[in-house]
Design a protein around this nucleic acid. Structure first.
Lengths: 342, 342
DNA sequence: GTGAAAGCGCTAACAG
DNA sequence: CTGTTAGCGCTTTCAC
């Protein structure tokens, strides 16, 4: 970056041709622009020889496109998001786009900062898991004709593209599965966040219990990364105080993970007496003992649709009617939700 | 990005001043350049009014600096790497740098591609966990005066900055801890990769056993992400065939995770009979039942040193003598390595 | 105190 | 078929 890298102009001088010619060859437009085969060969040979790397910053300034997409999720180390992220990255690669990942931590300020930074850097599109309060920034982004797709959750007030799953159905199915396994006192542990997907999961849980004539038992934990420890304490208290509790349905995979740790701390044997299902799968669940049942989101499906919509928006900048996809997930039944032999 | 965002020039026109003036105000150089207070105020007011966002691509082209750093690790979803990544990101933020994360998957081709992409995009520096075979590309990078720091492992042939830990000592301590807990038949499960840090861990394990008069029992798994399942089968076979085996020391946290799953599949009770220590900590280990002991790398220490060296290199582009840091880790003793009551 | 203008490296319309 | 040239939006030197 210091030892001045050769520029197109330098190359043109050395080869005694114009920068145009070099540029065309570089971009594979030689044939199209009817540059003679030998000239093409000569230029290509030289480019290879000096291992020329075009300055993409300059190119971007000129073309207005960076071929960079941003995938902005709550926490990229979460199994669900990182899985979708990897799939998206692969599809993008094949289409010559790069993907930048980042974690919002569901924090408004941080997300606004990230959006601004990437917007200023002229990225070509955003896939965002929106934190609460981000509505206006998203609207501004769309306003400025930036391709934006919401993911995992929508913002009801904005009429834009999104890909989410049917949270209500998923939660209902999961709860019904526990009921079918014979559990009677099924608790729901969730996060106290005013977000649609959380409300839907709760509603699904309640609906299933109602239909079966059972009573809901809900614990809402405050959302705050800094108090993971204290929310585990709350969970432990809750579990201890819920007499006759025989099963728990966790609203997210990180709650399950924290909850499992709490359960283990209460009593090493407790886990074998409880029915467990988690919303969202996790690599961890397959490894745990017992293996943990989970309602898995259709990650491939989501990634494919996300990218299909994105490429479409990238092509037709004109705002087509927003695509709003609600996909279905799958309940992965593992050991933790099997009927207990009494 | 389409509805042409206002440029410096547009603003200058509207305000009837020159672009220079606007630029100076924008960059806080108003005072320094002796622009009148009222003009500064006027420009600032307008900038705020239209919520002006400078085009950073253009700025980068001009300044040659993007204020972007790249953190390139084997797998960003690995607890160790993501933890260091987060710390680095925080430090960078405070110094007005952004960090891009990416996973090499230890794949040479992929890493070369990533290095090229980011180099072309004029990032300001690299922190890299080098995959095998990348030596030449790293040399080229350094050659072109790009700040580069190796992390987690070094490349013996290159005399450059790096921050690693004492793998030999860590492995030796971990093994000794198992010996102290009374285990006699301690196996070492590792990856068959020709990398210094793996050799060192193996050597540490062997040294500890030798000193205690015990016999090494080593399983080397092929490195290949696509065969996670089959390597677990290999582990299971190995565990079944190692008669009298009473403890396992895993060379990395992902091996431990896969191994734990295998152990659980062999026999639900087996885990309680085995002593386990893992090299590298993982969030998972605290949650597992039993909790898993691990040799934890000093993540804060690493992040701080990494960034200290990076900022130093960013300032003095002239190649100072490379800093080569070997830090010490800590053994976190949990349930899995406690002496078994017989 | 402020402005004009050069130029970062690249692309692409337009000439020839 | 190939070259000339005008910017993309910004920073910064130099002049007024």
């Amino acid at each position: 970056m210091k030892k001045k890298r050769p520029s197109l102009k330098d190359i043109a001088e050395v080869l005694n041709v114009s920068t145009t010619t070099v540029s065309f060859v570089l971009n594979g437009k030689g044939k199209e622009k009817k540059i003679s085969d030998e000239l093409i060969a000569k230029v290509e040979a030289y480019l290879k020889e000096i291992n020329y790397k075009p300055n993409l910053v300059a190119r971007s300034l000129r073309t207005g496109s960076t071929r960079i997409l941003v995938f902005m999720v709550e926490d990229i180390s979460n199994h669900f998001f990182s899985k979708v992220g990897r799939l998206i990255e692969d599809i993008s690669y094949k289409n010559d786009y790069r993907v930048l990942f980042c974690s919002t931590e569901n924090d408004l300020k941080r997300t606004q900062d990230l959006i601004q930074v990437f917007h200023e850097r002229q990225v070509d599109g955003f896939i965002i898991v929106p934190p609460p309060g981000i509505q206006e920034d998203i609207e501004n982004l769309i306003e400025s004709e930036m391709p934006v797709i919401l993911f995992d959750r929508k913002i009801p007030e904005i009429d834009c593209d999104y890909v989410i799953i049917n949270n209500f159905e998923g939660a209902k199915n999961s709860t019904e599965h526990l009921i079918d396994s014979g559990f009677k006192n099924i608790a729901f542990i969730t996060i106290d966040l005013d977000q649609v997907q959380m409300h839907d999961r709760e509603a699904g849980y309640i609906a299933a219990l109602k239909e079966a004539g059972l009573t809901p038992n809900i614990l809402k934990l405050p959302y705050n990364t800094s108090t993971v420890g204290s929310s585990r304490e709350t969970m432990k208290e809750f579990i201890n105080n819920s007499k006759d509790l025989d099963a728990i349905f966790f609203a997210t995979n990180y709650l399950s993970q924290s909850g499992l740790k709490g359960i283990h701390q209460i009593d090493t044997q407790l886990i074998d007496k409880l029915g467990i299902v988690s919303f969202d799968d996790s690599g961890f669940f397959e490894m745990y003992s017992p293996t943990i049942s989970a309602f898995a989101q259709p990650v491939e499906d989501m990634a494919e649709n996300l990218m299909r919509i994105m490429f479409q928006k990238l092509k037709n900048k004109e705002n087509a009617k927003p695509e709003q996809l609600v996909l279905e997930g799958t309940l992965v039944k593992r050991e933790s939700s099997k009927a207990k032999v009494v």
